[in-house]
């Protein structure tokens, strides 16, 4: 289901269904920059989640693996940035890069043994990573301040330029997101990205073709972790406050919802999913207590009836259109 069409040789055409998401995305951005602070916050969260999901999509969508523990790396990035910037007065951008490198190294060390696992063993092992990180962030109060959370994290800045207002912060986040998506696009078409998609198709076949399966899986796991870390850092700066609950199981389920709703294994999918899933609760505010229920029912319905997500639907629609 998640295996992409690796043997497709025709260039993806610009059918209307492919342009539609871009137009809508642009509309969302214009709306965000002309609206008040609340909309800016929602769109900012969507962009941050979009970054997280773009990374996760690399590991899950392209390479066909699963990580139920991306919240661990988001927490690493978030706490790393928070601690470096508040206690050690490190430049936010420098802290962002430092935590990304650190998360990548952690992913390398942790992933090396973990990625030998398959199927539900892999799912549970990565899930355990996320849970361990959560427990540590609660218990290691000297470092993380436990349930109290970390407050007073400065907004993003680079040298003299400081992103003071929400809109300036959103702009910075969007720049990082754009860079992340660009990197994903380039990587996807590269020799490495094509090899990853071959692994998703069949590990045995990929191995027979001389692709170093274990190493490429590990690299794509590290890439996903680096994206998650960057998303975590941006979140810390954007909100100014973090606590362990932010990085709980809810985050895992939410990022998966975005991935499956948008369409796993595509470039636009994670972004569409991130926007829809972030905006949806705002539209469902009237449901109040039932908001979470509505959201979970939606996820289950997607998993059962539309496992290829919005992009899959659009693709099949545009296919019909052309015929």
């Amino acid at each position: 289901m998640t295996s992409p069409d690796i043997i497709s040789t025709k260039a993806p055409g610009l059918a209307w269904a492919r342009i539609l998401p871009a137009v809508l995305g642009l509309g969302v951005l214009v709306y965000a920059f002309t609206s008040n602070g609340y909309v800016v916050t929602v769109v900012g969260f969507a962009a941050i989640y979009g970054l997280l999901c773009t990374g996760l999509n690399f590991f899950m969508g392209f390479t066909g693996q699963a990580s139920f523990g991306q919240n661990a790396f988001a927490a690493l990035g978030s706490y790393g940035s928070a601690i470096l910037c508040t206690d050690y007065n490190v430049e936010p951008v420098l802290a962002l890069v430092m935590t990304m490198v650190f998360s990548g190294l952690v992913a390398l060390v942790v992933g090396y043994p973990t990625l030998r696992l398959r199927g539900h063993y892999l799912a549970m092992a990565t899930f355990a990573l996320g849970l361990i990180t959560y427990e540590i962030s609660v218990e290691w109060t000297d470092l993380t301040q436990g349930y109290m959370g970390y407050s007073g994290i400065p907004p993003l800045s680079l040298g003299p330029f400081q992103a003071q207002t929400d809109k300036q912060q959103l702009a910075v986040i969007l720049v990082v997101l754009a860079l992340g998506v660009l990197a994903a696009v380039r990587l996807r078409g590269s020799r490495f990205g094509r090899a990853c998609r071959a692994i998703a198709g069949s590990e045995a076949a990929a191995g027979a073709l001389g692709i170093p399966v274990a190493r490429y899986k590990l690299i794509s796991f590290v890439i996903a972790a680096v994206y998650a870390s960057a998303a975590g850092s941006l979140f810390a700066h954007f909100v100014g406050f973090i606590s362990p609950e932010v990085f709980g199981t809810t985050m895992v389920v939410q990022s998966f919802t975005m991935l499956y709703l948008g369409g796993i294994g595509t470039i636009a999918g994670p972004l569409i999913g991130a926007v829809v899933v972030s905006v949806l609760p705002e539209l469902m505010r009237g449901l109040k207590d039932y908001q979470n229920i509505g959201y979970l029912v939606l996820l289950l319905a997607i998993l059962i009836y539309a496992p290829k997500g919005v992009v899959g639907l659009l693709d099949s629609l545009s296919g019909k259109w052309r015929r």
């Binding site: 289901m1 139920f68 199927g119 199981t249 389920v253 998966f256 998993l303």
Partner: peptide
Amino acid sequence: ASTFAIILATLATQM
């Protein structure tokens, strides 16, 4: 559906 999708669905059911 793939193993991971079913696992995710059971996790969502739990929530």
